[in-house]
């Protein structure tokens, strides 16, 4: 690891970890999935209501590290109101970002989520940041389980 952890543990991430947004469960919901990070035991449940191809509402539940929780909190805020296609595009951009394959200076659709860029210097933590997005992709595909392995 080369990066200073402060580059990753920025105020926004710490704040979302402390006060996660969209925390809880939607009942009823149209889509749901459970995500697991078997390596560290983090788990996350996503519930969504998709109406006319748009994510009308989304909530997450579960326990995990600050990176995981902040990522889920920011993700739910970012995809709410977006179309399924837009959300999938964001998921693939986010994955590219944390693997160091997306330059935040180039055009993208993930807005302030580029603040997770620091994760790329912590390879063992990439899965924590990606777990909510992997779970979202599974939920949108109609799969009940997602895993980072």
């Amino acid at each position: 690891m080369s990066g200073d952890p402060r580059e990753l543990y920025q105020a926004v991430i710490l704040e979302h970890n402390k006060k996660p947004r969209n925390f809880g469960k939607l009942a009823p919901c149209t889509h749901h999935a459970e995500g697991h990070n078997p390596l560290c035991g983090d788990q996350l449940q996503l519930t969504l209501n998709v109406e006319d191809g748009r994510i009308a509402d989304i909530k997450f539940d579960g326990s995990g590290c600050a990176i995981d929780v902040a990522s889920a909190s920011l993700m739910t805020g970012a995809v709410k109101g977006r179309t399924v296609a837009e959300a999938e595009q964001m998921a693939s951009e986010f994955r590219a970002l944390v693997r160091g394959e997306l330059d935040p200076a180039m055009p993208h659709h993930i807005g302030k989520l580029t603040l997770f860029e620091g994760v790329k210097n912590l390879p063992v933590r990439v899965k924590c940041a990606v777990l909510p997005w992997a779970t979202l992709s599974s939920a949108l595909k109609g799969e009940a389980q997602a895993s980072t392995e």
Binding site: M1, G3, D4, P5, L8, Y9, K18, C40, D42, G64, C65, A66, I67, D68, V69, L122, V124, R125, C128
Partner: peptide
């Protein structure tokens, strides 16, 4: 308190 062990581990690693 309030810090997940993976976050502790990452910072200690650094």
């Amino acid at each position: 308190d309030g810090v997940h062990s993976h976050d502790v581990g990452s910072i200690l690693d650094h």
